[in-house]
Computed example of a mutant assay.
Amino acid sequence: MTILVDKIRISGFRGIRNIEIDLPRIAVLIGLNNAGKTSVVKAFQLALGDYSRYLSEEDFYLDENDKPFSEITVDIRIVPVNKGDERVPLFEEEWIDFLGDKVQADNNEKQFSVIRTVCSHDLIRGGFSVLRYSLDTWPPFTNWNNAKVNQKKKIRTNLQSLPYFSIDAQRDLHSELKEKNSFVGKILSNIKYNDEDKSALEEIISDLNNEALKKSQPLAKLKTHLEKLNQSFVNSGKAEITPFPKKIRDLSKQFTVHFGENDNNLFSMEYHGMGTRSWASLLTVKAFTELTSEKFAEEEEAYYPIVAAEEPEAHLHPNAQRTLYKQLVESQGQVIITTHSPYIVALADQSELRLLTSNDSDIEVRQLSNNMVIPPKNNGCQT
Rank of each mutant, 00 (worst) to 15 (best):
L356N: 09
D263R: 09
L347Q: 09
E57F: 00
N146L: 05
P89N: 12
V257Y: 00
I16V: 05
F296Y: 06
E294I: 09
I72F: 00
A239I: 05
R366H: 11
V41S: 03
V79D: 07
T117S: 08
D136Q: 13
I76Q: 01
S232Y: 14
K178H: 12
A308W: 00
N378S: 08
E211Y: 06
S278Q: 02
L213T: 08
N371S: 12
L32F: 14
N371W: 04
I191C: 12
I26A: 03
Y343G: 13
M372S: 12
K198P: 02
S120D: 08
E58Q: 08
L347K: 06
I3C: 04
E109H: 15
Y54M: 10
R87F: 10
T142L: 09
E176M: 04
T289A: 11
W138R: 11
K246F: 12
L29H: 04
D6H: 14
K152R: 15
G100P: 02
N319W: 06
S11P: 00
S129M: 13
R53N: 10
S369T: 10
P140T: 13
L355C: 06
L159Y: 11
N145A: 00
E211A: 15
D136E: 15
E211R: 12
D172A: 01
L251N: 04
I241T: 06
A47K: 03
L229A: 12
E300T: 04
I337G: 08
N65P: 04
E203Q: 14
Q321W: 04
I344V: 15
S189F: 02
I155D: 10
T2I: 01
I363W: 08
L131N: 14
N262V: 00
I167M: 10
H225M: 11
S361G: 05
L162F: 07
N181K: 09
N145C: 02
T284Y: 03
L162G: 01
Y51V: 01
D263H: 05
S175Y: 01
V41M: 02
K326S: 07
N107C: 08
S166R: 09
T357Y: 06
Y164M: 11
N33T: 02
K228C: 09
G100I: 06
K186W: 02
L368V: 09
I363P: 00
C381W: 11
R125A: 15
T142R: 15
W144D: 05
S236V: 03
E109G: 10
I204R: 04
V335N: 07
K246I: 09
V79W: 11
A35S: 15
N65L: 04
I336L: 03
V234T: 13
R156L: 15
Q160V: 11
D136M: 13
A200F: 13
I306R: 06
K228S: 13
I96D: 11
V345F: 15
L291K: 15
S182V: 00
K377G: 02
R53A: 13
N158K: 14
D172K: 00
I78K: 02
N145E: 01
E270Y: 06
R322T: 06
L353G: 11
L159A: 06
I72G: 02
Q104R: 15
G127K: 09
